[in-house]
């Protein structure tokens, strides 16, 4: 039986290029959107798995506006075989819990025979890393996070390298399972055939009804967390400019260091 891998991807604004409105919201006009870099790492892992398994199909799935089809086309060009977009106004404003719910409904209704779900560690526009764990729980799948590479895989189980602040591990996990990876600097350069395939591929668009989502658990109103306020960090202190010669500066630094050592820094 064909081994089924689902890769969840997110289209994110290019965070190196953010401009702000005066209300601290992101200036969306002219903003470049890209596939979240960690999700490209997830696609790479899926491709590695497919290479080892041979009979394997990679499905890229995104939740987002119609514009996210661009990211899915890119994923198809990079080597994914199928693509789905979960697109519904009732999904808009979902926090990580609501997102995990929507993604779990996709799996339960469309892919309940999925063998492996691979996600990027976190999205660079949120940095929360919460969705993969939340999703694994909703599906009652085991999970490995902080995955850096695939060691071996067959239809029953796979072995992954994991790296945290304290250790490197090799972990064997029984399928179905959720993997999230910290690989993010991968570049997958689609070949011309990839682009041609992507151009001709259909992206299936699914609504809340299609995945039988309970809309009291989705979108802005279905999300428990709410942003109370957003602000540009004000990290300015009452800055004192110290003028004078190098000697003055050196003296000033040494005095401060000395004061700190004497427990009195004010």
């Amino acid at each position: 039986m064909t081994f089924k891998i689902i890769v969840f991807i997110k289209q994110v604004p290019d965070t190196d290029d953010i401009k702000w409105t005066e209300h601290n919201t992101i200036q969306r006009d002219g903003l470049e959107s890209v596939i979240n870099p960690y999700d490209i790492g997830a696609i790479q892992l899926a491709k590695n798995a497919k290479f080892l398994l041979k009979d394997c199909e990679i499905t890229a799935v995104s939740m987002g506006p119609l514009q996210a089809q661009d990211a899915l086309k890119e994923a198809l060009a990079m080597g994914c075989d199928k693509a789905f977009l979960l697109c519904d106004k009732k999904f808009a404003g979902s926090d990580t819990l609501a997102t995990a719910y929507v993604l779990s409904q996709f799996i339960k209704t469309q892919y309940n025979n999925a063998d492996l779900i691979i996600c990027g560690y976190q999205a660079v526009d949120g940095d929360t890393a919460q969705t993969p764990s939340g999703l694994a729980q909703k599906l009652d799948f085991p999970q490995i996070t902080n995955v850096t590479a695939l060691k071996e895989i067959n239809s029953e189980y796979s072995v992954w390298f994991k790296s945290t602040e304290y250790y490197n591990q090799q972990i064997k996990i029984t399928h179905p399972a959720v993997i999230s990876t910290t690989i993010k600097d991968t570049e997958i350069m689609p070949g011309i055939n990839g682009y041609i395939k992507a151009q001709n591929a259909d992206i299936t668009i699914l609504s809340a009804d299609d995945i039988q989502a309970d809309i009291s658990k989705t979108g802005f109103s279905g999300s428990p967390t709410q942003v109370k306020k957003a602000f540009r960090p004000s990290i300015e202190r009452c800055s004192e400019l110290i003028n004078g010669t190098n000697d003055n500066a050196v003296e000033c630094i040494l005095t401060l260091i000395k004061k700190c050592k004497e427990q009195d820094c004010d």
């Binding site: 965070t15 953010i18 702000w20 601290n24 992101i26 660079v124 526009d125 949120g126 940095d127 428990p224 967390t225 709410q226 942003v227 109370k228 306020k229 957003a230 602000f231 540009r232 960090p233």
Partner: peptide, 13 residues
């Protein structure tokens, strides 16, 4: 959030 470019204060229902 956004790589430290924005701070968000969040509450939960």
């Amino acid at each position: 959030t956004y790589g430290g470019k924005l701070m968000a204060t969040i509450s939960s229902k």
